[in-house]
Design a protein around this nucleic acid. Structure first.
Lengths: 220, 220
DNA sequence: ATTATTCTGTTGTTTTTACAACAAGGAGAA
DNA sequence: TTCTCCTTGTTGTAAAAACAACAGAATAAT
């Protein structure tokens, strides 16, 4: 396993409060495998069995849902040192209900989920910590989903935008910030029409509510 | 602790794969407390510190979110043997971002969250199982939130209704089923206008898509 | 039984969105 | 550079939702 991934894994919540020096041997124990993906390439596809958890090393992936009628929604974006797929594996879902694909060229670390929650042997002291960390990660995701719901429950496109943008400002600690989505992606994330959203953004800029150039926004 | 609650707790996912006979002593160990609530009474209120997890014994509670502008949204309904509040306690959220109130007269079992995840002593063999169960519960909630998102991302009221109703039918294993919401509650759950929703339901009935009387629906 | 209150359905008006079609700008490839 | 493709903004139209106001039904209270 390359050494350049260790600094990333130290940031990963799965390895929280674990000695960085212990990580390499844990990766062995977990049979972790690194894989590279091109932009747009599928990491997990809907309908398939889910046995692995992914950790983004570089790049970013999107978790998307496609409903009956082919409407696509971006559920979450996952960036470096973050996990994806853990909820579905842990809940024992047999068929994955979502697609995961690389939003840009990405390196992903894949870990068999069962190796995380089942002790490899009673002598391995790491698993207790791993499970505790997994508990925290799942709870955090839960809270994040609840927060996303706050934007989705807004009735108008404008209110959805404001809810999303003000959360981004809060999360990045500044009224100036960059968003990790293109316009189409943002529309898919907020479940609104792209052109209507674009026009609403222009209106809001004219009204002096905010400013933007490309992906850089500032709230006023 | 009354005996009539034991059959309920046996169904509770927190005590999954735990000998029913062991539950009473575990409740002692967890310092579980039973409380009664009248209809509409607050169980947890937004802004307060969250230290306890709730288990519904009888009745049902609603978890609701109130945004800046006073719009109310019902995030989830929690029925007998189900937990609530576990994500926020586990994620270490200091101030609760939601309200929890009894939707009807309810009995709730309150458990200090820290007693669940921290071993009372290394001799207590139950905690490992409790933590495993908590992992599963959090993952399940995650999946449930993802599913709810599928209804919220529908653009039209009709599609939201169809997404919700067909999931209910699926969950209850029959095209005839009862929903646990009044019209106003359902509208708050789906984030739509009540009167528009009511009128849409009537239209759908006229078109032969479904039938309903009070809370009993059947999809056709 | 009677009254009051809540719940549900209905209708009309205004606002907002989705949809479609198009033009300008930018990025990347040949 | 030139060409192509992709992204973004713009505008007009049709569809849908939000809102408001009201009437009848169901429920609870006296």
């Amino acid at each position: 396993m390359d050494n350049h991934i260790l600094p990333i894994l130290r940031q990963c919540p799965l390895f929280r409060q674990i000695e960085p020096g212990d990580i390499p041997s844990m990766l062995q124990c977990l049979s972790a495998v690194k894989k590279g993906y091109r932009k747009g390439e599928t990491v997990f596809s809907a309908g398939s069995a889910i046995t692995h958890v992914g950790i983004v090393l570089t790049g970013r992936v999107h978790v998307e849902q496609n409903d009956y009628w082919g409407n696509r929604t971006i559920l979450t974006q996952v960036g470096p040192a973050e996990l994806f797929g853990e909820a579905f594996s842990c809940a024992g879902i047999e068929k994955l209900p979502v697609n995961v694909y690389a939003a840009e060229p990405s390196e992903i670390l894949l870990i068999d989920y069962r190796k995380i929650i089942r002790s490899c042997s009673s002598a391995c002291p790491f698993h207790a910590k791993l499970i505790q960390n997994m508990l925290w990660i799942l709870a955090q995701k839960n809270v994040a989903l609840t927060q996303k719901m706050e934007t989705l429950t807004q009735r108008t496109t404008r209110d959805k935008l404001l809810a999303y943008l003000s959360r981004q400002a809060q999360a990045q600690g500044s009224s100036q910030f960059e968003i990790p989505f293109s316009r189409q992606e943002l529309a898919d994330y907020l479940s609104v029409d792209r052109s209507a959203m674009s026009s609403e953004l222009s209106k809001m800029q004219k009204e002096g509510l905010l400013q933007f150039q490309k992906n850089r926004f500032s709230l006023l």
